[in-house]
């Protein structure tokens, strides 16, 4: 909707710009700080321009073992990436299949199943961390990729969103597919999956960032440097056991931690727009 009122335009843009700045400022400061020499950072004032170190700190992080962790940052990024992808893909797969069952199949206690899934929304990882740790330990999966991903796989939110989307599809679609000789899997793969494209893209972004930002669970379950994630390592880097924390490295690593989610958003954004432009149905 568009109104021809210049005053409104100005006010709206002012608000938008303030909002954008509030979000961007910390990021800009982190980028600027990561290019300063350690000495400049310790002087107490942060210059609002690029420093002299350039990309040196990044090179240090990516090539040399990170202090307090023991492996270079690229390894940490890889671990985080594996965890985030595992969580995002796993969550989407499980949520879609669960929603598929809930919407398209008639089985006993269907509503009951739905409410049980829905209720797990009230139990985030923080609440169930002790029993979850116990289960993962029993399975012998502590300090491993599967142990990192598995407890975070089920998603009531995604199940719920897919369920709501599937409910909007006309039931005749499945009936037509049945008559056309498509079994349950064919229907899922040939019809539901392509129709859910935009939903999948949106949820993938959300779930990837959720996975990437995981802190508590990796902190508890991961003990070796080989499986350490970037976000938990960031904390270790800043623990100043001998003198001052290396802020120049910490800010650089923060920027590194920002990059993959940004890439995912930029890539998926094109899908959103595509989904919005040629609306199906």
């Amino acid at each position: 909707m568009r109104y021809h009122r210049p005053g409104l335009d100005v006010a709206a843009h002012t608000l938008l710009i303030i909002g954008a700045l509030a979000f961007m400022l910390p990021v800009i400061l982190a980028v600027l700080a990561s290019t300063q020499s350690p000495g400049t950072l310790f002087s107490g004032t942060l210059p609002l321009s690029f420093g002299t170190s350039g990309l040196d700190h990044y090179m240090t992080l990516l090539t040399e073992p990170v202090r307090g962790v023991g492996v270079p940052a690229w390894r940490l990024m890889l671990n985080s990436l594996l965890m985030a992808l595992g969580i995002a893909v796993g969550k989407l797969t499980i949520a879609m299949l669960a929603a598929y069952a809930l919407v398209f199949f008639r089985f006993p206690f269907r509503r009951c199943c739905f409410w049980l899934i829905f209720m797990t929304l009230m139990l985030p990882i923080e609440v169930r961390i002790v029993p979850t740790y116990g289960v993962v330990a029993e399975l012998g999966l502590l300090d491993s990729y599967p142990g990192l991903v598995l407890p975070l796989l089920a998603s009531a939110t995604a199940t719920f969103l897919f369920r709501q989307f599937f409910l909007t599809l006309p039931p005749e679609l499945m009936e037509a597919a049945r008559i056309d000789g498509a079994g349950p899997w064919r229907f899922f793969i040939d019809i539901l999956l392509p129709l859910s494209r935009t939903n999948i893209a949106a949820l993938f972004v959300i779930m990837f960032i959720y996975g990437w930002n995981q802190y508590l669970w990796p902190l508890v379950t991961i003990t070796s440097a080989d499986h350490a994630t970037l976000v938990t390592s960031l904390k270790r880097l800043t623990i100043a056991t001998d003198g001052t924390p290396p802020w120049h490295l910490a800010t650089a690593m923060t920027v590194l931690a920002l990059l993959p989610p940004v890439v995912v958003i930029i890539l998926m954004q094109r899908w959103f727009i595509k989904g919005l432009v040629d609306t199906e149905k």
């Binding site: 006309p170 005749e172 009936e175 597919a177 049945r178 008559i179 498509a182 040939d190 019809i191």
Partner: peptide, 20 residues
């Protein structure tokens, strides 16, 4: 028999074409 095995074809009121 399943719908597909009955060798029938159906035209639906809302057509139920596959939108994608």
């Amino acid at each position: 028999q399943e719908p597909a095995e009955r060798d029938i074809a159906m035209v639906f009121q809302n057509y139920a074409l596959y939108p994608h």
